[in-house]
């Protein structure tokens, strides 16, 4: 089963997206910010990470940079799911090692479709 690490400081997003992903057959692990997510990487061993950008304690860009330093996460797809739409931020995320960018609100079909594009066999 494909495991998704979902990182967001919004409880609404965490719970609604978890429900959608669970319904679609994914196993979901949640974290409330980048620091929390880093602490769960080793145990969760996610096949894909979906992270918000603007979060307290550790934002999404810092989290991506730190996560890419982990050998087990070096090639794990990381999608940014955020309300942010600025092109400059996208380029920062790309440079940090993000795989893609999704602007909230994203539809369930689109979300699942993107996951299946970047995770073969998901």
């Amino acid at each position: 089963m494909t495991t998704v690490l979902l990182v967001d400081d919004s409880r609404t997003v965490l719970m609604s997206m978890s429900a959608i992903l669970t319904k679609s057959g994914f196993e979901v692990v949640t974290a409330t910010d980048g620091s929390d997510a880093l602490g769960k990487l080793d145990e969760a061993k996610p096949n894909i990470i979906i992270s918000d950008l603007n979060m307290p304690t550790m934002d999404g860009l810092t989290f991506v940079r730190e996560a890419r330093k982990r050998p087990g996460v070096r090639f794990t797809p990381i999608l940014m799911l955020t309300t942010e739409s600025a092109q400059a931020k996208r380029q920062e995320a790309k440079a940090a090692g993000a795989t893609g960018w999704l602007v909230k609100p994203v539809g369930p079909e689109e979300l699942i479709s993107v996951i299946r594009q970047v995770v073969p066999g998901a």
């Binding site: 967001d8 997003v13 609604s16 429900a19 959608i20 539809g107």
Partner: peptide, 8 residues
């Protein structure tokens, strides 16, 4: 469920 992103 996806529509609840509006709250965020």
């Amino acid at each position: 469920m996806a529509g609840l992103q509006f709250q965020d």
